[in-house]
């Protein structure tokens, strides 16, 4: 396939894959006020990178494991009377710190830490593309399959329970989806900016939507456009790609917020 030989095409496909999975999931993150939760999971993944390198296993596997462990830990502790914001702050930043320290122990392995912190979308290979699209398909499949139950459980736990839906199971599914998105997005936007891919398109879509489904679709579109546009901008102005994508989605967010403000004041 000559098309995939072009690194820009590969980058676009990779970013697009992440965006269309991250955006709908991001809607749930926004609705359930789990923004910090995404952060904690993402930050834990740098520890996964270090462990994967130390044990010479796949980065994707290491990151997925660490993200899963972190997400389940947070999810389990959440119902136990801890102050959530404090707990998440502790877990998110300590995971990042431990990860960075662990990476420094890896002698003999030369790794580009920046690539994991901020992503290196231009270096995405074919194998990465397969992993990203499989992960994205898995997440989208999970979300579509459980959509109604997830939405009901998000709205109100008792309402869900009365309808025979187990809110804890739905929470677990979101946790799993989050870990997968983090693991596949690390190459594209890096550990520090994954939360941005989740939150910003969803937040931008809010003012343009009247139903949850609309919001998810619009968020995915905005995410996709931001990826393509950000790639172009970074190519044109020679800026780092991951941050450029996030910058562009923030511009979209500002425009949609401003439009809403104008609409209200009229």
């Amino acid at each position: 396939m000559t098309l995939l030989d072009d690194f820009l095409i590969r980058a676009a496909l990779a970013g697009f894959g992440v965006a269309i999975a991250a955006a709908p999931l991001g809607c749930f993150v926004v609705w359930r006020r789990m923004a910090y939760f995404g952060d904690a999971t993402a930050h834990a993944s740098i520890l996964g990178v270090a462990l994967a390198l130390a044990f010479d296993t796949s980065i994707f596997g290491g990151v997925l494991c660490c993200a899963l462990i972190m997400a389940t830990t947070v999810s389990t502790l959440s119902g136990r009377g801890y102050a959530m914001d404090t707990l998440l702050g502790v877990l998110a930043h300590s995971a990042l710190a431990f990860g960075l320290v662990a990476v420094s122990f890896l002698r003999g392995v030369r790794i580009d830490l920046m690539a994991y912190l901020f992503g290196d979308i231009l270096a995405v290979g074919r194998a990465d593309l397969v992993v990203i699209w499989l992960g994205a398909a898995l997440v989208l499949g999970l979300l579509i399959w459980r959509w109604s139950s997830l939405l009901t459980a998000t709205l109100n736990q008792e309402l869900a329970q009365a309808a025979g839906i187990n809110p804890r199971r739905e929470q677990l599914i979101l946790t799993l989806a989050l870990a997968v998105v983090v693991a596949v997005a690390i190459k594209v936007v890096g550990v520090l900016l994954i939360a941005a891919m989740l939150l910003i398109p969803a937040a931008t879509a809010r003012s343009l939507s009247r139903t949850p489904e609309q919001m998810a679709v619009v968020a995915a579109l905005i995410g996709g456009v931001a990826v393509i546009g950000g790639l172009q901008l970074s190519f044109q102005f020679d800026t780092p790609t991951g941050p450029s994508i996030v910058c562009l989605s923030t511009v979209f967010f500002a425009i949609s917020s401003f439009a809403r403000l104008l609409q209200r004041s009229r």
């Binding site: 609705w31 109604s148 139950s149 939405l151 009901t152 998000t154 709205l155 309402l159 869900a160 309808a163 839906i165 809010r206 939507s209 009247r210 139903t211 949850p212 489904e213 609309q214 919001m215």
Partner: peptide
């Protein structure tokens, strides 16, 4: 969470 009355009635 944008939610119309119509959409709410369709939950779950």
């Amino acid at each position: 969470l944008p939610l119309t009355v119509r959409r709410f009635l369709s939950l779950p």
